[in-house]
Simulated scan of single mutants.
Amino acid sequence: MPKNFKSSLQNRAVARAVALWRQESGLSLSEVSKRVHWSSAKTSIMQNGLTPITDADVMALALAHGIDDGRREPVFWGAQRARDPLRFDLLTGGTVPCVEWTYDEVESEANYVRVVALDVLPPLVRTPEYSGAIGREQVGAVSEQGHRRYPDGHRAQMLRHLTDGVSLRMDVVLGAAVLRRPVGGPLVMADQLFQLAAFAELDGARVFLVPDEVGAFAGMTSFSLLSFRQPQFDDVVHLDHLHGNAWLESEAERRPYTDTFRRLMDVVLPTAETSEQIVQAAQRFKDAAS
């Protein structure tokens, strides 16, 4: 592996694609390596995103797995883009389709996730009814965008990892107003907040409230900050916008979010007090519904 190499999200998207090719083919690492004439270790390191993957590597692996042009090309271009995304986008005008990544693909690689959600609850902890109520309030132009989704299988995987308290840790920072905002009505909110309280009891999860009396943070927005075990993977920040979503990878782009999270953690309520307020809010909604 190259010294001091950091694997970008684009390089990791290419790695996931070539790993899927091998999985679909049923070939072993040694069988693939014989076909491409390099070591099994190189193949393994590539498909785990721990080394740069060149367009020539992609071509060799596509031929080894019998991948057609339609599936190969986005991965081929993705390998080129991973070398210098700004230059690639400038030269191509952003018109060349490259293999991409989804939020759940990146989160599946993380071992520590920090979530700040000051207006509505983050997707992982939402009930279907709460999510549906939010969706009904969105205008069509917003709901059509590629916002963060939580497929059922990924949600179950994340909750399993949080349950064991070893493979994944997650800190969720919420604005206190989230507990009072009646999304979907009293019964929906009661069920949602009781589920949030149960989530906060998972071994790997912590939930914190930012009390109302804390002053507003300039430029505050909701975001997720993801960290990884592999030293080749730097932290990344994920943002949801009305027009879609964005990823921030450079240290300069991440710094305002890491600093903001640190500042928020200085003023949040302790987890025990947070859990008590969540349950009390849930019971108030339950009583109102009755």
Rank of each mutant, 00 (worst) to 15 (best):
D119F: 12
E144G: 06
G135P: 11
S143I: 07
Q192W: 05
V36I: 15
L226G: 09
Y103C: 04
G204N: 00
L239W: 05
G70F: 12
E201L: 01
A218N: 07
A289K: 04
A13I: 00
Q192R: 03
R71P: 04
L226C: 14
D203F: 05
S28Y: 09
R16G: 08
R81T: 08
V113E: 01
H154G: 03
T54Q: 03
E249F: 06
E100R: 12
V207R: 00
G165S: 13
Q192T: 06
V237C: 06
L9E: 10
R206T: 11
S39G: 13
L174R: 02
G94P: 02
M170N: 01
P186V: 07
M189K: 03
Q23D: 10
K286W: 02
S40N: 01
L29D: 06
D287N: 10
G49I: 07
H154V: 10
S33M: 00
L91V: 12
D203W: 07
R169A: 10
R284V: 02
A133E: 08
V116H: 01
E276K: 15
A41W: 15
N11R: 08
T163P: 00
R255Y: 09
H161F: 14
H243A: 13
P231Q: 14
G219A: 07
I67K: 06
G70T: 15
P85E: 00
G153T: 14
A246T: 13
M59G: 11
G70N: 12
V178F: 02
V183E: 02
S39K: 13
I45L: 15
S25W: 09
P52T: 10
S275W: 00
F223E: 06
T163D: 09
Q195A: 15
W247Y: 15
A15H: 04
A272I: 07
R114F: 00
S131W: 05
E249P: 09
N11M: 06
G153H: 13
T274F: 00
R254I: 08
W77K: 01
P123Q: 05
D240H: 04
Q195H: 15
P85I: 07
R81V: 10
S44A: 13
P97Y: 02
F233I: 11
A197V: 02
Y150C: 01
S8L: 01
F5R: 10
W101P: 06
F88E: 02
E249W: 07
Y103T: 05
A79M: 11
L50A: 12
G94C: 08
T51C: 11
V75Y: 00
D266E: 12
E213T: 15
S167T: 11
R72M: 15
Q10C: 07
Y150I: 07
L202I: 08
D266C: 02
P186W: 04
D235P: 03
E213C: 10
P182D: 03
Q80H: 13
A15N: 09
E105T: 11
